[in-house]
């Protein structure tokens, strides 16, 4: 159990490194080595650290712990075939973590990041549409039931293709350097993470690495089904590389445009669900 968590952590960090490498190669740069993010996290953890004097100290530390805790819990939900609604809940909790990160420090840049994280809450909407559409097909939100359904009826990727697009968009929204990553845009330094340096940043990197692993793995489990670990990892890598291509060639959207794009996608899927319901009913 703990070994799987550590494994997910290192694979997640490696994925972050590959993500940066692919972006760099697409943009014609050499890029960092793919294990750069692992070194990065270790480096941060060795740095001398303190809590800013202006920060709300308890909150400042607690959000880092919560960030690691919720994504560990999400990984266990995936492993035990739990409810994807709970996974959805943890994803929303992650929003609160981002928000708390920015607000707790008292730094104006952190504050800007936090305000943008509130604005970009629309990124949860496509996930809601995903859950709705999956329930429409499987009549269950337990991951174990979804996997069982796919063994009988084939991958949901084909049946519920719009839901897959929505979830793809959700994963894209949460990646570094993505067109939707307005909360860590460079014009506001590092956004909500500006004041979390040293070991706090290392803790966050740990949480985010598990997050990337969980989101990609959840995509594979929900839309393709249970695979051997190596095949699943390969598939996750392919999805990640496709995401990296999008991140590499698309500029960052302006904050409210991200909201509009995500809301429109959700609206389109909602219409799809209603039309499907009318046709099938």
């Amino acid at each position: 159990m703990i070994e799987y968590l550590i494994f997910a952590l290192f694979i997640g960090l490696l994925f972050h490194g590959i993500h940066r490498k692919v972006i760099a190669r697409v943009q014609g740069r050499p890029g960092p080595p793919i294990w750069q993010e692992i070194l990065h996290t270790l480096k941060f953890s060795f740095k001398e650290t303190w809590i800013p004097k202006t920060a709300s100290q308890t909150l400042f530390v607690a959000v880092v712990l919560v960030a690691i805790g919720i994504w560990s819990a999400a990984l266990f939900i995936l492993l035990s075939g739990g409810s994807i609604l709970l996974l959805f809940g943890i994803y929303l909790l992650h929003k609160i973590v981002e928000h708390g990160l920015g607000l707790s420090s008292g730094s104006p840049y952190g504050k800007f990041g936090a305000i943008r994280s509130v604005i970009s809450a629309a990124s949860e909407l496509p996930l809601f549409a995903t859950v709705g559409l999956i329930y429409f097909f499987t009549h269950s939100l337990m991951l174990s039931d979804i996997i069982a359904y796919q063994q009988v009826h084939g991958p949901l990727l084909i049946a519920a293709f719009p839901a897959a697009i929505a979830m793809y968009l959700v994963i894209l929204s949460k990646l570094h350097y993505s067109p939707f990553a307005i909360i860590e845009a460079k014009e506001i330094v590092s956004g909500n993470m500006t004041e979390h340096f040293g070991i706090w940043r290392a803790g966050l990197e740990v949480g985010y690495a598990i997050k990337t692993y969980v989101l990609l793995y959840a995509f594979v489990l929900i839309f393709i089904g249970q695979l051997p670990l190596l095949a699943a990892l390969l598939l996750m890598l392919l999805i990640l590389v496709s995401l990296s291509f999008i991140c590499a060639v698309s500029p960052m959207l302006s904050p409210y445009d991200t909201v509009t794009v995500q809301s429109l996608v959700t609206g389109a899927i909602a219409v799809y669900i209603i039309v499907l319901g009318v046709i099938l009913a």
Binding site: S56, L59, H99, L103, K111, I115, I119, S263
Partner: peptide
């Protein structure tokens, strides 16, 4: 105000993080 956070984003400018 779950999905539309415009007013809430402006509210967040207030002090008192927790």
């Amino acid at each position: 105000m779950a999905p539309f956070y415009i007013a809430k984003a402006e509210i967040t400018r207030a002090q008192g993080a927790p």
